[in-house]
Design a protein around this nucleic acid. Structure first.
Length: 586
RNA sequence: CGGGGCGUAGCGCAGCCUGGUAGCGCACUUGGUUCGGGACCAAGGGGUCGCCGGUUCAAAUCCGGCCGCCCCGACCA
């Protein structure tokens, strides 16, 4: 039901803007005094408390006016930067026929994560998780010649993924808005250009949104293709981790990052010696019992692969990186306790490569040195084990990077940091164009598949990441560029005739000057309004209160610094406008 | 999907162990006082205690099943 302009609506609005109000007393901004029980992450807590969003079901959110404003501002920045690199905005269906996804095989590859349904004619349909298929279909229909490329098409739309575990508020949802763009080029070189354009546009977008972010190498995963990067906003609420070298700039998603584990000083153990180590199963227990550095212990894990059992060897302080192992040996799972006993004849904790005729895969780190290993006999370990001499193995990088290890490129110390993935860019190549037959003719009349790229941004994640990176005990501190309003006008006591009049007049002036201002004209006590102002986190607060008004002044407070400036009432609007110009883009 | 927790008024919670048909704070309504950092007094409105079944004279409370939400892990094109 659309809002109708009528004399009775908006209720408190003057005749200057009959159908538009930025008066709090007329707006839906349901702030909460207390933290909602279900919210853990700072951004989740604050988005609910500030009345930006409400949850309808697990991973399904309503955006209320304040949240909508933030998304609008983010999307405006995205559109400006996408248009700047030649992107053209389009709108694509959210509902897709199954045949589209069957054509690339993803209908069967993707499991429960895809929302599927049938139409009344019992035809299989799905809700789009992403739009490579639709874009490629469109390219098949419309692109014939090399002359028609390059193209960059983008959309900002809702997408669906039936996430196994929606979490952290708006950070991981089942229905989400996403800016996706797709590039179509004649060859790899063209794709390289489109990719670089996107890399630059994305850096500008996240920069303009006030985010601190890293550009890191990423695992292309099932998207396939020649290369990919992710844009990562550091935050403790992030689900991903990146590995960073502060010295040479190496930056990668931890899923594919590599590192060197600094070697310990190896003792002069010259022969194999069996040691009684009763009851010591974990590395920590063995290390404590024998009073030796965990790095001198060999960790032996048994996993079950498609080819059968496999022993994985790591140094005591290292963790197995399951992604890396999976890339090497395919799907696997840890061996069960009884399986291990049956295959190796030994209890967990005393497993070792010595004398066991099983395939072995060792981390490269282990190739050097002399170690304590399990004895394949309960209650015993063996000292003096030299890999290569006492057992053989295939060597590869299978350890999970940990903070404090060193950079392979420059040797400096690496840091591991949790991050929110706010954007990704993929070189798709011809993975989608080939199955669809999306081809063009080159200048010699030769047919070639179109070379594609795909590039995503999550606007809601930008908002959440901005809050994660910029808040304090009292609430959000918005970057000016994506704040729901640039200015928060607050009349301390609307029952006071003078304050009310000055507040109304300043509001009118701001509106007339084209400055979007949230005017808190509610009949609430000052404390309530100040607390709410801090919670919403609008960069500048203009306070009309008894203190300054006697001197004909108002206070202008900076939310971030909490510094107040006294300004004559008549100069308020120009003064604020000057501040806004100054703060632009920050 | 594995592990854990929680579901009682709009929100945050107590009551459950030891059955006797529901309570606190905030919010909301009305009146009064107050009025620059989440006011006070008084009077009110609001709940099939997630759902279904069982035990019992009697169930928010005990038992069984189901559903939902959150957290950890797996997964995440």
């Amino acid at each position: 039901m659309p809002r109708i302009c009528s004399p009775s609506f908006p209720r408190n609005e003057s005749h200057h803007s009959p159908c538009h109000t930025m008066r709090w007393s007329n707006l839906l901004i349901p702030t909460l005094k207390e933290d909602p029980a279900e919210a853990e992450a700072a951004s989740h807590r604050l988005m609910i408390r500030s009345g930006m969003v409400r949850q309808l079901a697990a991973g399904i959110y309503c955006y209320l006016p304040l949240g909508q404003r933030v998304l609008d501002r983010i999307n405006t920045i995205i559109r400006e930067e996408m248009n700047r690199i030649g992107g053209q905005e389009i709108t694509l269906p959210a509902l897709h026929p199954a045949e589209l996804w069957q054509q690339t095989g993803r209908w069967d590859e993707i499991g429960e994560e895809m929302f599927r349904l049938k139409d009344r004619g019992k035809r299989d349909m799905c809700l789009g998780m992403t739009h490579e298929e639709v874009i490629t279909w469109l390219a098949v229909k419309e692109i014939r010649s090399y002359r028609e490329m390059p193209q960059i098409w983008y959309q900002i739309q809702v997408k669906f993924r039936d996430e196994a575990r929606p979490k952290s508020g708006v950070l991981r949802t089942r229905e989400f808005h996403m800016k996706d763009s797709y590039s179509l080029d004649a060859d790899e070189e063209g794709l390289g250009r489109s990719y670089e354009f996107h890399k630059e546009a994305y850096a500008r977008i996240f920069g303009r949104c006030g985010l601190k972010f890293y550009l890191v190498e990423s695992d292309p995963g099932m998207m396939g293709g020649a290369g990919s990067h992710e844009f990562m906003a550091p935050s403790p609420a992030g689900e991903d981790e990146v590995v960073l070298c502060t010295s040479c700039g190496y930056a990668a998603n931890i899923e594919l990052a590599s590192s060197k584990s600094p070697a310990p000083t190896f003792p002069p153990w010259s022969s194999l010696e069996e040691l009684a180590t009763p009851g010591t199963r974990s590395i920590e227990e063995v290390s404590n019992f024998l009073q030796i550095d965990p790095r001198l212990i060999l960790k032996t894990l048994m996993v079950m692969t498609g080819e059968g059992p496999l022993l994985c060897l790591l140094r005591g302080d290292q963790l197995l990186d399951e992604k890396k192992l999976q890339r090497l040996v395919g799907p696997f799972r840890p061996a069960h306790r009884d399986e291990m006993k049956e295959i190796a004849g030994v209890e967990v904790g005393f497993l070792s490569p010595l004398g066991l005729e099983l395939p072995r895969l060792a981390d490269e780190t282990v190739a050097e040195g002399v170690y304590v290993a399990g004895a394949n006999r309960e209650g015993y370990h063996v000292r003096g084990v030299v890999p290569g001499k006492h057992f053989s193995a295939r060597y590869a990088d299978i350890h999970h990077v940990q903070s404090g290890e060193t950079c392979l490129q420059c040797g400096a110390s690496l840091a591991v940091e949790p991050v929110i993935e706010v954007g990704n860019i993929f070189k798709l190549g011809t993975r989608y164009s080939t199955p669809f037959g999306a081809v063009y003719l080159d200048e010699k009349g030769q047919e070639h598949p179109i070379v594609m790229g795909s590039y995503g941004i999550g606007p809601a994640r930008i908002a959440a990441a901005a809050i994660e990176q910029s808040h304090d005990q009292d609430g959000i501190i918005w970057p000016m560029s994506i704040s729901p309003f640039p200015v928060h006008l607050l009349a301390v006591n609307v029952k006071d005739e003078t304050m009310r009049t000055v507040g109304d007049e300043l509001y009118r002036q701001f509106v007339a000057a084209g400055v979007e201002v949230l005017y808190d004209d509610r009949d609430e006590r000052a404390g309530v309004k100040f607390k709410d102002a801090d919670l919403l986190g609008i960069p500048y607060r203009v306070t009309v209160g008894s203190r300054a008004i006697r001197e004909g002044q108002v206070e202008i407070r900076n939310r971030r610094t909490r510094e107040d400036a006294l300004v004559p009432i008549a100069e308020t609007v120009p003064h604020v406008q000057a501040l806004l110009t100054e703060t632009e883009g920050s």
